[in-house]
């Protein structure tokens, strides 16, 4: 793997696919000017995030002419972008499309749909049913759309499938100014998470977060590229649009796995036996915490 990655920390307009499509072309021109081989857009980059009832109205099939126009631009460089995908049987997915050589190489339908706090994805979207790596001419990539990244199992599956880099398109709203820390608590959490993913899976992590406001909630940007050693190699500023560039190569992955051979020592066979035990015996799963809480402790 040796390519220049461009992370487009953009501000999609809510519910305006045509305008966002034009913006994608502009970002692609900028990325092309910089010589990027891989261009990453945030979650739902063609539609905006807090769609609510717009979800079904703005959904498109993958053969939509506007999607095809964008995919056609991947002849020169590989592109990852986000949209609401409608399936033939009218399910709606929060999807990330990987386009290369003018074709759709892969679609990741977000699996873990947050439906708590300000999130309502479970109300509108169907959940994807798999994590598959993309075998691209640039390398092997695993896509985790935002909340997917919080489930360690998801990144681990990409790790087992030999991903060189985890691509993490996000629309993460800012929360937490009531702390004394230097940054938003949501930012601190993501900083920790992306570093941990890189360390656990000895892979590059490309976290592409959007910016802008929707109904008062700010997307905090700070997109970043983390090395397979867990170090932040490049980072965009906070709440502004920015094109973040960083060159990816296989060498750090190789060296990281030389120091600590986590992939060699992973034990999927053991995990499979454990999961099989749990899943085949519903009582065992239940015993793992399904009973009533002993008390309601104060939490901080």
């Amino acid at each position: 793997m040796d390519c220049l990655a461009a992370l487009c920390q953009m501000r999609p307009a809510l519910g305006d696919l045509d305008r966002n499509l034009e913006a994608h072309f502009e970002w692609l021109d900028r990325a092309a000017g910089a010589g990027a081989g891989l261009v990453l857009f945030p979650e739902l980059s063609l539609t905006g995030y807090f769609l609510r009832d717009l979800t079904q109205e703005i959904a498109v099939g993958l053969d939509d002419p506007r999607v095809r126009r964008l995919v056609a631009r991947s002849k020169e460089r590989s592109i990852v972008f986000g949209l609401v995908e409608e399936s033939r049987d009218h399910r709606y997915y929060n999807s990330a499309v990987f386009a290369e050589d003018g074709e759709i190489k892969h679609v990741h339908r977000k699996v873990h749909l947050p439906d708590y706090g300000i999130f309502e994805e479970g109300r509108y979207f169907a959940s994807g049913d798999r994590f598959e790596v993309v075998d691209s001419k640039l390398g092997r990539f695993g896509i985790l759309v935002c909340e997917d990244a919080w489930h360690l199992s998801a990144g681990w599956l990409h790790f087992l499938d030999g991903a060189d880099a985890l691509l993490v398109p996000c629309a993460s709203p800012a929360r937490g100014v009531d702390t004394d820390g230097p940054e938003l608590s949501s930012e601190t959490a993501w900083r920790t998470l992306t570093a941990a993913l890189a360390l656990f899976f000895q892979s590059w992590v490309l976290h592409c977060n959007r910016v802008g406001f929707e109904d008062g909630a700010m997307y905090w940007g700070a997109s970043s590229v983390v090395t397979p050693f867990g170090q932040r190699a490049a980072e965009a500023a906070g709440e502004h649009e920015e094109l973040l560039l960083h060159r990816l190569s296989s060498d750090p992955t190789r060296r990281a796995r030389m120091f600590t051979p986590l992939r060699r020592d992973a034990r999927p066979d053991l995990v499979r036996r454990h999961l099989a035990r749990l899943l085949e015996d519903p009582d065992a799963l239940k015993a793992a915490g399904d009973e009533a809480p002993a008390s309601r402790p104060a939490q901080d």
Binding site: V177, D180, E239
Partner: peptide
């Protein structure tokens, strides 16, 4: 508590945008 620098940045951007 309140991270005042951060709050000022977010709220200024909010009003502008």
């Amino acid at each position: 508590g309140c991270n005042v620098e951060l709050a000022a940045r977010v709220l200024t951007a909010f009003l502008r945008q």
